[in-house]
Design a protein around this nucleic acid. Sequence first.
DNA 1: GTAGGGTTAG
Length: 518
Amino acid sequence: MHAEGFIPDRPSVSSTLPVVGDIEGIAFGGQIHGYVIKVGLESDSCVVSALIDMYGKCRHAEEMVRVFDEVGWMEVGSCNALVAGLSRNGLVNNALQAFREFRGQGIDLNVVSWTSIVACCAQNGKDMEALELFREMQLVGVEPNLVTIPCLLPACANIATLMHGKSAHCFSLRKGFSEDVYVASALVDMYAKCGRIRDARTIFDAMPSRNVVSWNAMMGGYAMHGKAKDVMELFNLMQTSPQKPDFITFTCVLSACSQAGLSGEGERYFYKMHQEHGIVARMEHYACMVSLLGRAGKLEEAYDLIRGMPSEADACIWGALLSSCRVHGNVRLGEIAAEKLFELEPGNAGNYVLLSNIYAAKGMWDGVDKVRDLMKSMRVRKNPGCSWIEIKNKVHMMLAGDKSHPQMNQIADRLEKLSVEMKRLGYLPSTDFVLQDVEEQDKEQILCGHSEKLAIALGLINTSHGTPLRVIKNLRICGDCHVAIKFISSFERREIFVRDTNRFHHFKDGVCSCGDYW
DNA sequence: GTAGGGTTAG
């Protein structure tokens, strides 16, 4: 425009800035900001919103806030841009604080404002807050729209609250939103993560149009449920559709192969990804491949792959190697991986726990002690285990060792009876999974207090015979609990789904869908 | 003719 002698005005500036933000071109964005001041557009509301958006997208949060503060007045558009910008920069608490302030100031917040804050919470691990704000927006008379729903659904999916997810689904059906590709893709994801993989597929099949996210959500769901065959079938079906797979599609395919132990298949996909689809392998793909080879027992090959990588391996990759070493009891490579991980993420307790489990499985107690001392000196504490179960539309949260649940006496009774029955059938408590420095008999007690066992006992007490139980855990499932739940699924004749940080374990008739490798 | 909110993995 400049070259041709035109003078950019308000609309030209307002429509150029978001593009600058999208490509993170702060140098150009700063120039436009200078131009805005020069020609006196700095108090135009559209221009201000666009500037805030641009600085937010370019990760210049301080400058973003400065622009907002300097205007001297508040208007809903720039407030919305600020909340979104804070959220995008991971400043959740600031976003929540700003939002409360806007409400206090009597700003007339609209559906965009409320959707932004719901999205902010859902994207930053504040799932309960997202649900609460969604309820509140309706209480104050702001009607959720087509965009609000896919912002809310990931929160339902994260904490697996089928009740809230279903209610958002019903809302979408009533409002005619359910065929929107964003809404439907988010529904597929939500149902899959709530353990309802078949419902997810029903939604997927009914979609009038699908984009790559829809396909990925469905394949990711199958992968999480350990259904590698379905992932590959869907991948083939996708080839006949107009949608091209992207790098996420391949993480789904590769992780599915890894879960199912299909190392040959996985290696072929890894090759095809580059050769036939022109997708360059990222860290995530290497992590899948390491896990794929490692879980198949090819630990040396996995280590070779890491050493042959074009760039330094990240924590996900070393973590995949360490997990595989835990599965196959490889102390040497486990120590190598752990050393890297202690360097890359010294505060991550999970890595110490894995290494300790490797030592414990080999009876190397001095190793176990060494890890415990290291954790002490690094001031790393094991995250408390936490499990949820939804029973009759109420979510119950159980913390490891917590005795505060109102039905605690019944839970303890039930666990005692389960323990007797399991031992009769040959269960031996695996006290190796207890990392604390306590007496052997106390270890068994600690295992009984694991959150997943508490949640399952609660579910058994409060649901009728034969009802499937669905439990979500914040950490990887404990090895002793995994054994115990297999027994329970068998003699209680219950299907039990446990979603841990990685995947679903579907226990039925004494076996688990993961085939005991995870 | 202009700004501000959207789903997927590891």
